[in-house]
Simulated assay, not measured.
Amino acid sequence: MNKIRAIQPDTLRRKVEDAVREAITSGVYAPGERLIERELCEGLGVSRASVREALRRLEAEKLVHTVPHRGPVVASISVEEARQLYALRAVLEGYAAQEFATQASDAAIAEFGAAAQHLREAAGSGNTDHVLRAKGILYDIMLSNCRNDLVCEILRGFYSRINLLRATSLMHPERLPHSLAEIDALVEAFQARDAAKAEHVARLHVINACAVALKQLSARTHQQTLDAVS
């Protein structure tokens, strides 16, 4: 009798998809960079069919864009598109925080506090991947306990695209201390069951992150324009 289950094709596909998504959102592949199927197959040790299916799904998330005569490339976000994403994220995340403050169990709030401490420790390591994962855990806890499935679905769809910008903005030396302080304020609001404060802090956190991300994106876009005409 077999003691281990065979890996199902769908499980393999998800693993390939997750690996490529993480490489994109962590900055291993830069916006506009080609995703060469052969290299992905060799790096991941999987078939071309698995890679193509993963790329199709990431294209649906708008993380990948197919360019004629070039093939799949990492998607780029314009300044205006980023502004719109952050604006809607601020509203929805504020709402999620407000609901979490009143609807979440004491255990969930304690879990959020522990995750916030883990985020601070990850930030101290200076490892961008660790910080992004720790930040992702925070959001998972809040969204899983705000009791609004539609808000969860929309925000989780945003996060993949926003992660194209988050790695640089979050780790910016002038932003990181303020980001951690805002998360600490959010923990305090949750512990006090203060929905109004939680909503305000969550929105402010996104607005401040947006300002840094847009500044960096504008600078990168300007440099790319200069490089193109030089």
Rank of each mutant, 00 (worst) to 15 (best):
H118K: 12
G157S: 03
N148G: 03
L155C: 02
S76I: 01
H65F: 09
E121A: 04
N127M: 02
L138F: 00
V74S: 14
A90K: 09
R48K: 13
R133I: 06
D129V: 03
I77E: 02
H118P: 01
F158P: 15
G113K: 08
L164M: 04
S78M: 11
N127F: 13
Q103M: 10
Q117N: 04
S50C: 15
G124T: 11
T102N: 13
C146I: 00
A96K: 02
E81F: 05
A49D: 12
T128K: 05
A116Q: 01
N145W: 09
Q103D: 03
R83Q: 11
S78K: 04
F100A: 14
G136S: 12
R133E: 15
N148P: 03
P68T: 08
R133A: 14
L164G: 06
A110V: 14
Y139P: 00
C152R: 13
I162N: 07
E81T: 10
Y86V: 06
A54I: 07
R70M: 12
I137E: 15
N163K: 14
H65E: 13
S160Y: 12
A104W: 01
A114I: 05
Q117H: 15
G45M: 11
V51N: 14
R161M: 07
L165W: 11
A167M: 03
A115C: 01
R48I: 02
A75D: 13
V131M: 14
Q117G: 12
R156G: 15
G45P: 10
L119G: 05
S144Y: 01
A101W: 04
T128G: 01
T66Q: 07
V51A: 07
V151Y: 03
C146L: 02
P72F: 10
Q84A: 15
A115K: 03
L88M: 14
R120V: 06
V73T: 04
G71L: 13
A60P: 09
S76D: 03
H130N: 06
V91Y: 04
R89P: 00
A167Q: 03
L138D: 00
D149K: 08
T66H: 09
Y95K: 04
S76W: 06
I154A: 13
E111I: 00
S78E: 08
P68V: 08
D129P: 01
D129N: 05
E61Q: 13
L155H: 01
A104N: 00
R120I: 11
E42R: 08
Q117P: 04
S125A: 12
T102L: 10
A115R: 07
A167R: 14
H65Q: 15
I162C: 04
A54W: 13
D149V: 13
E93Q: 04
N163P: 02
R133D: 05
P68W: 14
N145R: 12
A87W: 11
E59N: 06
S144Q: 15
H69K: 07
S50M: 14
H65Y: 14
I141T: 06
L63G: 09
L88S: 15
M142R: 03
A60W: 15
Q117V: 10
T102F: 10
L138H: 00
E93C: 00
M142G: 00
V74A: 09
I77F: 07
E111G: 10
S125L: 15
G157A: 05
N127H: 05
V46I: 12
H130R: 14
E80D: 01
Q103W: 12
L132S: 15
L138S: 00
A96M: 11
Q98L: 01
A97Q: 03
E153S: 09
G113M: 09
E99F: 02
